[in-house]
């Protein structure tokens, strides 16, 4: 069995601050990390591998420095890694991204020459874009079933899986489906382990990150990068803080009274 894990290198968003003077993002010193839910994906792949004979393959699309994220995946225990990197991929929306990923998965399956079952694991969404679209679009292109928002997963047998999908605050649906399949996972599915020292050494000395460009994938430029994208960013702006900001003054009793008065004027009460 092959287990593909799609990962994205993202900026550590929670560290991002806005420069109040220029109203722009302060990027200095922001580390690049593996998107957190993708790490849960790697962890799940490794867990499946403990139970079954499987090869874990990490794939990422991004600039050349995304290699670092793939090395980390290798250090965690992934067997092979592929980086789709080419200026021709830049500016891709989710349609164009999922197309490039689909081409790479087809190529890897083709090259292996074995007729193997496979599972694709994605993080449900990335913390920078938050679209949650690449997974389902990838599944659609490969014409395989999908289960998204997965919080629990098990292989039923060699042919099928059972997964718990969170679809409402109060409801979870348990779905059974057949391989090959794509699942997208939530953070509560597991706790990713840190790589071991020998894992890290292997990732740099024993294992490889294979780079694939548009040519290697035989990609039609009409369907990748900016040109292959249907959506485009028209405008980017920093949100204005809405409305007035009133700091109340006086004793605690006075402030409480004033607040109630204001909330009454605002028709909250």
């Amino acid at each position: 069995m092959k287990i593909f894990v799609c990962i994205k290198q993202v900026p550590g968003i929670s560290e991002v601050k806005i420069d109040p003077k220029t109203n722009t993002l302060i990027r200095e010193g922001i580390p690049s990390i593996i998107n957190p839910m993708d790490k849960n994906g790697i962890e799940l792949a490794l867990k499946i591998k403990e139970e079954r004979e499987a090869e874990v393959i990490a794939i990422s699309m991004g600039p050349s420095q995304a290699e670092k994220a793939l090395r980390e995946a290798l250090a965690m225990g992934a067997d092979r890694a592929f980086l789709l990197t080419d200026r021709a991929f830049a500016g891709a929306d989710t349609l164009a991204t999922s197309h490039a990923l689909a081409l790479s998965i087809k190529k890897i399956l083709n090259d292996s020459k074995k007729d193997e079952k496979y599972i694709i694991i994605c993080g449900t969404q990335a913390i920078d874009g938050d679209t949650a679209q690449v997974g389902p679009e990838l599944a659609e292109e490969l014409q395989i079933p999908q289960i998204t928002y997965v919080q629990k997963f098990e292989l039923k047998d060699d042919d099928s899986i059972i997964a718990e999908r969170v679809f409402r605050t109060e409801e979870i649906v348990v779905i059974e489906t057949k391989l090959p399949v794509l699942i997208s996972v939530l953070k509560q599915i597991n706790t990713p382990k840190y790589p071991t020292m020998s894992g890290i050494i292997d990732a740099y000395e024993q294992k490889e990150v294979t780079k694939l460009d548009a040519k290697a994938l035989n990609a039609d430029k009409a369907f990748i990068g900016l040109t292959g994208s249907q959506t485009e960013v028209w405008k980017i702006f920093i949100p204005e803080r809405k409305g007035e900001h009133i700091k109340l003054t006086g004793t605690i009793e006075e402030m409480s009274r004033e607040l109630c008065q204001k909330l009454k004027e605002d028709k909250i009460f």
Binding site: Q230, E232, F237
Partner: peptide, 16 residues
């Protein structure tokens, strides 16, 4: 919102 809600992006689909 994008980028963890730090910035807003306006997106359009002009050609299709």
């Amino acid at each position: 919102p994008t980028f963890g809600g730090n910035i807003m992006a306006t997106i359009r689909t002009p050609r299709s």
